[in-house]
Design a protein around this nucleic acid. Sequence first.
RNA 1: GGAGGGUUAGCGUAAUUGGUAACGCACCGGUCUUGAAAACCGGCGCCUUCGGGCUUGGGGGUUCGAGUCCCCCACCCUCCGCCA
Length: 425
Amino acid sequence: MLDIKLLRDQPDVVRAAIERRGADIDLDGVLAVDARWRALTHEWEQLRAEQNRAGEEIARFKREKQDAAAAIAAMKQLSEKIKALDDERRDAETKLRDLVMVIPNIPDESVPVGADETANRVERQWGDPPRFDFEPKDHVALGEALGILDFDRAAKIAGARFCLSRGPAALLERALIHFMLDVHTTQHGYTEVLPPFLVNSDSMRGTGQLPKFAEDLFRLEGTDYWLIPTAEVPVTNIFRDEILDESALPVHFAAYTPCFRSEAGAYGKDTRGMVRQHQFNKVELVKFTKPESSWEELERLTGDAERILQLLGLPYRVVTLSTGDLGFSAAKTYDIEVWLPGQDRYREISSCSNFTDFQARRANIRFRRAGGKPEFVHTLNGSGLAVGRTVIAILENYQQADGGIMIPEALRPYMHGIEAIKAPV
RNA sequence: GGAGGGUUAGCGUAAUUGGUAACGCACCGGUCUUGAAAACCGGCGCCUUCGGGCUUGGGGGUUCGAGUCCCCCACCCUCCGCCA
C-alpha cells in the first residue's frame, strides 16, 4: 500500500501515477474519508485525555479513602460518548484503509506509459531462434510421441490443466530445479530456503493476494490454509512484522516450490499443453534491500534469471512492462520471454519486479539504521525460472528431426550424463 | 485429538488479587576526555495539530477505569495418544 502521507501531501503525484496506469481511483473520495477520520480521531483523543485525567483523580480519591461516587457517575456518561465516537472513528479508519489498499503502486519514471502490453518496451535480446530444416513440433506433440508427457491420464487423475511427466521428462524437471538452485546459491549468492507450501490468510494479505485476488487461489475447505500461487508469498512473509538490523540487509533468498493457481478467468486460454497449469514448479528469487539499492538490485536479479537461460542456451528477450501491463504492487517489472518454436513466438518465463516499499508497508517489514527510526525495506522478486515452461522451451528448442530431444550441456551432469532423450525406434 | 503451563519495547524480567505499564542489559545523544572507557544526565515502541493520544500475542466483553476478571482465536513449551 501507499503511504497515506504521500496522498495527503502530494496528491498530484499520486493522481498522475494513477492516470499513467489507466486505473480508475476516486482520489478525492479517499482524501475526504481521510479528513473525516482525522477529525473524528482528534475529537476522540480530546475526550480520552479528559477521561484519563478523571481516571487519575478517581484513583487518588480511592487511595485517600474519599468518596468517588459523584466523579464515577459523571464519567459514566463520558465513557458512553467515547464508545460511540470510537465506533464511528473505527468505521472511518476501516473504510480509509480499504480505499488506500486498492490504490496501485507508483510506476517508476523509467516505465513506458501505455494502455496494455503493446506498449511494452523490448530492452534486449539474447540468442537467435533456432532454424529447423523440418517443421518444428510443439511440446505436446513431442512429449506425447516420446511417451514422456501424458495429458490424458493427468486429466483422469485430476482434471484439465494438469500434467503427468514420466521417465526422462520427470527427471528433466527435477534436474532443472536442482540446476537452477545450484547456480543461484553457488554463483549468485542466494540462500536457499524451503518454505511451507500452505500459508494462512495473514500471509496472503501481506503480499497482496488477499483480499482482491481470492478467486485466483485454492483454499483448503474448513481451514485457514491456502495453497501458495508462488514462493513469493511464504518467502516475502518470512520477515512480516519484523524490524531487521541494517547489517542484515540485503537478504537474497532462492526457493523452489510448486505453485497452485485456479486460473479462474483464463478459460479457453492456453488450454493446450503445460503452458498454463493449476500446478507448476518454480524457482523464485526474493530480495529484501535498503531503499537506496533496490533499483540496482532489480537489474542484478533480472540478470541472475537471464543467466539460467544463457547456460541452457535458450534464446530470450527482456521486456519492460508498460504502465498498463504492470502488476498492482510493482513499481517496475521486467518480463523475460523465452523463444518457443512450437508457438513461433516469445513467451513469459520469468517476471522480475521491484515493489519498492509498497509490499513492505503492507506486510510491515522494516529495518533500522544505527540510531535511526524503523524504515520500510524494499522487496523484489523474480522467477529464476518457471520450471514447467523451461521444460517446454528445452523440448521445443532442442528437438531433432526424428522427434528426439538433445539435453543442454549444462544440464547433463544433473541428467545422469545422458545427451539426448531418444526417439523410439 | 487430550491435559497442563506460557506470550509485557531488540533481549531478559517486574507491576498491591482492578487504580492507569516499572527495571536491567543492549542501543542512541549529551556532559567530561587528546581519544576511548567508566561515571552522570537525557532518550530508548508508534502517532501527533506538541494539547495530547495509542501500545502488555490478536479480537470481543464487564467496568468510571483491565497486563490483571470473563469469552473466542493464534502461536510457543511440557506430557499423553496417534503418525511419515
